[in-house]
Design a protein around this nucleic acid. Structure first.
Lengths: 202, 202
DNA sequence: TGTTGTGAAGTATTTCACAGCC
DNA sequence: GGCTGTGAAATACTTCACAACA
């Protein structure tokens, strides 16, 4: 459920007041939905609020973390050390949400062996070793479309649990392995579509 | 409609056969949906196929481009020359879909004045001038959350038509200006959620 | 014959509205 | 009194299934 992530992020604003509470109304205002939606979403996973009072901020936060599965660290490997992949490291929330990058792989011989942060970039051939030795659970595929399916297949075989895919291909993996696709051009197309549509109506 | 972008991308595979046709069935297979869904989606915008025959690839491609509003170039400004923003340039589809980056702005004094590709990085103070002089229609916000709302407001005031937002904040802009949010951490959370949920059921 | 375009049926999601509890 | 949790109503979306037609 994508909205749960929003709710968690919205709670950041309440960081100060520790024993504070928040109502579904307030949460909805920050999250582009309705109060009823917030309550339905949450009620699907349990009963986290107090009637007449609202939700205790700290309790709700830890409940959401648990539901989203980020109440424990996740070991991630980055395949493809281009700008997109490396951008994730810059992003403070990446680490603060419990995602630990434990390996970086790249096929560029100039990059292999060089140090990036506290990691040494390794060759794609090492994929299975890396996954096995470092207990990698998630991989981020930030490489050309042509190479993505091959790496994905090997990673699944090696026991990976999920894939964040930046390559513009539909990956063919068994259904037990969830894949999230990020396609930046598609986001831009959503914009031009919305604008064009609005102009058409006018 | 997000699926229309997928259909357009699926047509790439048919590039060779110029007078070729494609059926809703084939399109569905490549796009993770059903044939009925493809036909419904398309029928909402017109009648592009021939019964008994399917859709002519070249015709469908140009129809989809028109629907998505990418049958003409879009002038884009990048605000924030960090890795995320610059990554878009590397991405071949960005240009090939008709998005032209006509300006780059960044607040880092070390970057201002330096050349990036065929553009000179400018100061954020120039935002209004850049938008006015260069006919910028879309901006890509790839900067810290704290600065995003300010820039967004000024850009809207200066006549921008849409925003691709990488900053983890809900931008407050008038409803006529569409905003697409990209939040990479949220994508990872969708993964951990899916995995955790599956483990819980097992 | 083969495949579209589309009303009708079937699901899923969202909103309403209110009983139940703090 | 105020706000949650939740069935029921309303809305949106997807799938079915078939007439229309190249």
């Amino acid at each position: 459920m994508r909205r749960l992530s929003h709710y968690l992020r919205s709670l950041e604003g309440f960081e100060e007041q520790d024993g504070g509470t928040v109502s579904s109304e307030e949460l909805a205002a920050r999250g582009q939905t309705t109060a009823a939606q917030v309550r339905k979403d949450l009620s699907h996973f349990g009963s986290f609020g107090k009637r007449g009072l609202g939700y205790r901020v700290d309790e709700l936060r830890s409940s959401l973390r648990q539901i989203l599965g980020i109440d424990r660290p996740w070991r991630v490997a980055l395949v493809g050390a281009g700008r997109v992949g490396l951008a994730l490291f810059e992003y403070p929330a990446f680490r603060s949400r419990g995602y630990q990058c434990v390996a970086i792989l790249d096929s560029d011989p100039d990059k292999i062996g060089t140090v990036c942060g506290d990691l040494t970039i390794r060759a794609p051939a090492d994929l299975e070793d890396v996954i096995g030795e470092l207990d990698v659970e998630l991989i981020i595929l930030a490489l050309p479309a042509s190479a993505a399916q091959g790496v994905a297949g090997r990673a699944v075989e090696a026991g990976i649990k999920g894939i964040l895919n930046f390559a513009p291909v539909r990956l063919n993996v068994p259904p037990r392995v969830p894949v999230e696709d990020v396609n930046l051009v598609m986001e831009l197309e959503a914009l031009s579509f919305a604008i064009t549509q609005a102009e058409r109506d006018a």
